[in-house]
């Protein structure tokens, strides 16, 4: 025990807890150099360079071009930049880190799905 008495027994775990929370969401920066191009190619290139898993619906990326990304950044920041201004959106599985890329029309289907579930 020190002059702060019992209080910092609890402050330290709390601070550690906050650090742990941020660490859970932290993805290290990596060097990426992905050219502008066809999404079917660039998304795979992103997966290779960022060393992450990815899955996407092939028909929904046909004729879609993604933005070039060059520099050090976290994978999630990189894919955000790649997809800005395209009809594609992404989701990242929080537990296993896999990225899913779909057309932004898919959420409508998901809405239908939600309404189906609610009716049941």
């Amino acid at each position: 025990m020190n002059r702060f008495g019992m209080s910092n027994r609890f402050i330290l775990p709390f601070v550690i807890y906050l650090f742990a929370l941020s660490a859970c969401n932290y993805q290290g920066e990596i060097s990426l150099s992905i050219p502008e191009g066809q999404a079917s190619y660039t998304l795979k290139e992103f997966s290779k360079q960022a060393n992450v898993e990815i899955v996407f619906n092939t028909p929904s990326v046909v004729d879609v071009r993604t933005n070039a990304v060059v520099g050090n950044m976290a994978p999630i920041a990189a894919i955000e930049l790649m997809l800005v201004g395209t009809p594609l959106v992404f989701e990242r599985d929080p537990e296993t880190g896999v990225f899913a890329v779909t057309s932004n029309q898919i959420p409508d289907a998901a809405k239908d799905a939600d309404s189906v579930l609610k009716k049941q």
């Binding site: 079917s40 898993e53 990815i54 996407f56 537990e95 899913a100």
Partner: peptide, 27 residues
């Protein structure tokens, strides 16, 4: 017949299934 492109580890069934649910309209 749904067509996908992917780069996934073969043991990541959990992540695959969860994303099929959240992003690809499956249950």
């Amino acid at each position: 017949g749904m067509r996908l492109s992917y780069s996934l580890w073969s043991d990541n069934v959990e992540g695959f299934v969860r994303l099929m649910e959240s992003s690809f309209g499956m249950r």
